[in-house]
């Protein structure tokens, strides 16, 4: 009798626990940039892996219809059967289209359709899809196509928050500014910045925009700095996002970003970007 009672109590505790878990609201985050080739897909895959390794149930959604790449970067291209357009058109159920990543529990990929165009889905359908994913996951990361047209708007419409990927270059910062303006008018919040491919040596030499300059121009908050790292290309070649194992600088930066997304107060990695030596210091003081 006692045993039965304790079992009953345990069960109710478990139920309460799962109800509490359900109460935690899922977050949908769009990863975008405006300009292409600045590291949206790399960022999405590495952050998704890092979040899953931190114990969250995560889906990385490839929202780039017609130019799907997230499956390849994550090394899951051979396991793609259906895509999210199939889900929306009723060709399959959501869990048939989701590809479970076997390397870490709680990580999934939702691929894009490769043989369709951007106008295969509309904004209402994307909102519906995001609603379905919200029920299933703790975090939804949307890998957005480049540009400011329909593809971007579709990817962003269902998101709560945004991560802007920018490289320390004039065209990238300019395009990011336009995207930020559009996301603000869509009511996304918070909108936070990832400065990608920073080269501390070039910043030190005065030949690369430094992070404070970029933040000053764009006037948004920073969530992380990812240094230029050869391991990004190695990881892409192998289809193994760096955050699975590598201790490389970029991997560490992405892990830190994931932890900051979850609300942890992780200090920024300090890169040696200050001018060096006596001469450098004199120059810095004099501002020349």
């Amino acid at each position: 009798m006692d045993e039965q009672e304790s079992v009953v109590i345990q069960e109710t505790e478990l139920k309460e626990e799962s109800q509490n878990l359900e109460k935690e609201k899922a977050r949908i985050i769009v990863v975008t940039s405006g300009k292409g080739g600045v590291g949206k897909t790399t960022s999405t895959s590495n952050i998704a892996v890092a979040l899953a390794k931190l114990g969250k149930k995560v889906v990385a959604v490839d929202a780039d219809i017609g130019l799907r790449n997230l499956d390849v970067i994550m090394g899951l291209e051979n396991r793609v059967v259906y895509n999210f357009v199939d889900v929306l058109e009723g060709n399959c159920r959501l869990n048939q289209a989701l590809v479970r990543d076997k390397r870490v529990d709680t990580l999934y990929l939702l691929p894009a359709a490769q043989t369709r165009t951007k106008d295969a889905v509309n904004q209402e359908q994307m909102i519906k899809l995001c609603g379905m994913l919200r029920d299933e996951f703790d975090l939804v990361l949307l890998d957005c196509p480049a540009g400011i047209e329909g593809g971007f708007k579709n990817a962003a419409v269902g998101a709560d928050e945004a991560l802007i990927v920018v490289t320390p270059e004039v065209p990238s910062v300019r395009d990011a500014d336009r995207i930020i303006g559009m996301l603000e008018s869509m009511g996304k919040s918070p909108i936070r910045l990832i400065v990608n491919r920073l080269r501390p040596d070039m910043v030190r030499g005065g030949d690369m925009l430094d992070v404070p300059d970029i933040i000053e121009i764009l006037a948004i908050s920073l969530i992380g700095i990812v240094p230029e790292d050869d391991n990004v290309i190695r990881a892409a070649n192998r289809g193994e996002p760096m955050t699975f194992a590598s201790k490389s600088p970029a991997a560490q930066a992405y892990i830190n970003i994931a932890r900051r997304i979850l609300g942890e107060d992780v200090p920024l990695i300090q890169f040696d970007t200050k001018p060096r030596g006596l001469l450098g210091n004199i120059r810095k003081i004099l501002g020349i």
């Binding site: 270059e169 004039v170 910062v173 300019r174 500014d177 070039m202 910043v203 030499g205 005065g206 030949d207 690369m208 925009l209 430094d210 300059d213 121009i217």
Partner: peptide
């Protein structure tokens, strides 16, 4: 001339 300074000036105007 350090090119980053130039980049920042240009960006400010462009934006």
């Amino acid at each position: 001339e350090a090119s980053a300074k130039k980049a920042k000036e240009r960006l400010q105007f462009i934006i």
